[in-house]
Amino acid sequence: MSVGIPDFSWAIGSTDDLGLLVEAVAAWREGMPLDELRQRFEFLELDEFADALDRGEPTSSQ
Score class of each variant (00 low, 15 high):
32 M>I: 12
41 F>A: 06
14 S>L: 02
59 T>H: 11
56 G>R: 08
41 F>R: 03
56 G>H: 09
41 F>G: 04
19 G>M: 13
17 D>N: 15
51 D>E: 14
23 E>Q: 07
37 L>D: 12
24 A>P: 04
28 W>T: 10
56 G>S: 09
55 R>Q: 06
46 L>K: 10
20 L>A: 12
12 I>N: 01
55 R>W: 05
24 A>F: 09
27 A>P: 02
28 W>E: 06
43 F>D: 02
22 V>W: 07
43 F>H: 07
51 D>T: 05
33 P>V: 13
16 D>L: 13
38 R>Y: 03
45 E>Y: 05
48 E>L: 06
36 E>F: 00
15 T>R: 03
19 G>I: 13
33 P>R: 09
42 E>P: 04
44 L>G: 01
55 R>M: 01
29 R>H: 04
58 P>A: 05
16 D>N: 05
21 L>T: 05
17 D>H: 04
59 T>K: 00
23 E>N: 00
30 E>G: 12
58 P>I: 02
25 V>H: 12
45 E>V: 02
36 E>S: 01
54 D>G: 09
46 L>D: 10
32 M>T: 02
42 E>R: 10
20 L>E: 03
57 E>H: 09
51 D>K: 04
34 L>D: 08
42 E>S: 09
57 E>L: 14
23 E>M: 02
37 L>I: 08
18 L>S: 11
27 A>S: 12
58 P>M: 11
33 P>S: 01
60 S>G: 12
17 D>F: 01
36 E>D: 01
49 F>N: 06
40 R>I: 00
18 L>C: 04
30 E>R: 14
31 G>R: 15
26 A>T: 03
25 V>L: 15
47 D>I: 10
25 V>W: 10
58 P>K: 08
56 G>M: 11
14 S>N: 06
17 D>G: 08
60 S>R: 15
24 A>D: 03
43 F>M: 11
16 D>K: 13
54 D>E: 12
37 L>H: 04
22 V>I: 11
28 W>F: 15
23 E>T: 03
36 E>K: 10
49 F>V: 10
33 P>H: 08
14 S>A: 09
33 P>G: 03
29 R>F: 05
59 T>D: 11
21 L>K: 00
17 D>I: 02
39 Q>A: 15
55 R>T: 02
57 E>Q: 13
33 P>E: 01
60 S>V: 15
54 D>M: 13
45 E>F: 00
54 D>F: 06
21 L>D: 03
40 R>G: 11
25 V>A: 15
35 D>L: 13
21 L>A: 10
42 E>T: 13
60 S>P: 08
44 L>M: 03
22 V>Q: 03
43 F>N: 08
22 V>H: 11
24 A>Q: 06
41 F>C: 04
